[in-house]
Design a protein around this nucleic acid. Structure first.
Lengths: 173, 173
DNA sequence: GCAAATTAATGATTTATTCAAG
DNA sequence: CTTGAATAAATCATTAATTTGC
């Protein structure tokens, strides 16, 4: 037992907090994945670490807020109403093609860029609802669709790897 | 919006229920992954579908139980105490090497075998705590370790794909 | 000062609740 | 009204601060 638990490095923590402050409180799986692979530059990290971090951070933020409100019941408006902030506007397609045995991965190139530079495009285009559960591992049963190149944020083509060559039997539901 | 939701085919449902009845109420990520890829033979399915199915099934089972218990407060002992059932004995290593940019995938071969045959080895060796979150996407910072072939259940070698060639900078925490 | 003991933070997991498709 | 999907709350567990007695 006693599986050592993850501990964010200062760099990682800074970036995470910064993102959170900027309004990213509920990154979708694609974003989590990107964040993860980027943060891995600063030390070992897993998808779930990032996912949990945001979960916990949000929860404990709320917790703190509630406690404070009990002491001085002033209903404070949300700190920074994102006036022209570009995100949270529309459903964007971190959503790939859900289904069947193809795995979509993305590759971060230019890993020398600064964290913020690298992450910029993340916020550029919006954020989406989703708990962390819709996967990296997404599949397309009708593999014959043309549109095989998928973009994570309207912008970034993903690399596609074949996983298992599924022999879909003729069943239908 | 209106993303059509998954609907288990009769075969899928049967298998799932069977697994559940046999005592698998909390499959770990590796098991979920295997189940997913196997069930994909019977129709489109995603990791999260399987994950959620077990979550919901367990929850609603308990719910029902509680309701029943309110009506006739008889504490019923667990239905089938698995006499020689081999699972739930020890910590087994669906756990791969957590960390860093290598992705471990497994490939199901012999997809013609019967569901139960194919799944048998799953229960052979025990089940492990874990919610579904420790990933398919596991990584190893010290990529230089000898032990590169990983087994999901003491038995099944996994295929290893390189993901992103991480350049771990010299930072330490 | 310095370790054993106690408490606070926070990573990880589980459970409950809610939303929404059909 | 059943059930898949998603979110939030509660809980467990481990590590870091800190207090305390010597």
């Amino acid at each position: 037992m006693a599986r050592a638990r993850w501990k964010p490095t200062p760099q990682q923590l800074m970036i995470l907090q910064d993102m959170y402050k900027k309004g990213l409180t509920n990154p979708n799986s694609c974003q989590v994945q990107m964040i993860t692979s980027h943060l891995s530059m600063f030390g070992k990290i897993q998808w779930k670490n990032v996912f949990y971090w945001f979960q916990n951070h949000k929860a404990r933020d709320r917790q703190k807020m509630r406690k404070q409100q009990k002491q001085n019941p002033i209903p404070p408006p949300p700190p920074s109403p994102p006036s022209s902030s570009s995100y949270a506007s529309g459903p964007v397609n971190c959503q790939l093609y859900p289904n069947s045995p193809t795995i979509f991965l993305h590759q971060v190139e230019g890993t020398n860029a600064s964290p913020h530079q690298m992450m910029k495009y993340l916020w550029k285009n919006g954020m989406m609802r989703s708990n962390g559960m819709d996967w990296m591992l997404m599949t397309d049963q009708e593999g014959s669709s043309n549109n095989n190149i998928v973009h994570c944020n309207n912008n970034r083509p993903l690399k596609t790897l074949q996983l298992f060559p599924v022999t879909t039997t003729g069943f239908k539901d």
